[in-house]
Computed example of a mutant assay.
Amino acid sequence: MNILTRFRDIMASNIHAMLDKAEDPGKLIDQYLRNLNRDLGKVKSDTATVMAEEQRAKRALDECQADMDKMQNYAIKALEAGNDADARKFLERKATIAEEETGLKEAYDLAASNASKMRQMHDKLVSDIRELESRKNMIKGKLSVAKTQERINRIQSSVGSANNSKSAFDRIEEKANQAMDRANAMSELNSPPKDNMNDLMAKYNNSNTDSGIDDELAALKESLQKKNNK
């Protein structure tokens, strides 16, 4: 049946494909529920059509059975009036209507079965939407927590990168110190040898000077002493 096939197509929507394309799962939840409610409106309309068909088939069957009962009653009345020929005509009409009843009964049974299936699927969709509505806030809460965790993870990653940068700076500084030490060593190696002879000579020169001063000081003291003795 086209209505049932269309309903199955609606219920078979590929939520996984929607998830793959979704940038914000929270918005997807709202969109998915909007789609389901829109589909529910279509299902309600189709269900009402099928139920109306069931009611029409039931009325047709009831009218047919009422006509059969009517022909039966007229046949009885004709017999009671002693008119067998009229009774036969009523029974013949009843037999013709009975043949129609078979087809009408089959049509009604099918319509009733389709209406029952549609009501079940309609009720199932309503139940699913209610369940999803009740779970929506819980799911959004989980998504919010997940986003917070992702931000924390990014911050932790940034802190880790900063630590790595600090370690890299330490290594660069160590290399700079090594380079400085090598440069100083090379500068020392490139300097001409120091001549210590001048220093050595100055040592003795200073010693001679100090000795002369001491002699002059002793002579001055001696001169003063002689002067005082006079």
Results as ranks from 00 to 15, higher is better:
189 L>A: 14
229 N>P: 11
100 E>L: 05
103 G>F: 02
142 K>M: 09
125 L>N: 01
135 R>Y: 05
193 P>F: 02
125 L>T: 00
60 A>Y: 02
85 A>L: 09
42 K>H: 12
119 R>K: 12
17 A>N: 13
24 D>E: 10
168 A>D: 11
128 D>A: 04
30 D>L: 03
138 M>P: 00
158 S>Y: 05
202 A>D: 14
93 R>Q: 13
57 A>G: 08
12 A>L: 06
164 N>S: 15
172 I>D: 15
27 K>E: 15
36 L>K: 07
147 K>M: 10
140 K>W: 06
70 K>M: 08
136 K>I: 01
144 S>K: 09
48 A>C: 05
226 K>F: 04
187 S>M: 14
75 A>I: 01
65 Q>C: 04
154 R>K: 08
29 I>V: 12
177 N>T: 07
127 S>V: 02
134 S>W: 02
93 R>N: 12
47 T>C: 02
38 R>L: 08
213 I>D: 10
9 D>C: 02
25 P>W: 00
110 L>Q: 06
216 E>L: 14
153 N>C: 04
11 M>W: 02
54 E>R: 09
204 Y>L: 05
169 F>G: 13
54 E>K: 14
180 M>A: 14
82 G>Q: 02
92 E>M: 10
76 I>P: 00
86 D>F: 04
194 K>D: 08
33 L>G: 07
69 D>S: 11
39 D>K: 07
26 G>M: 02
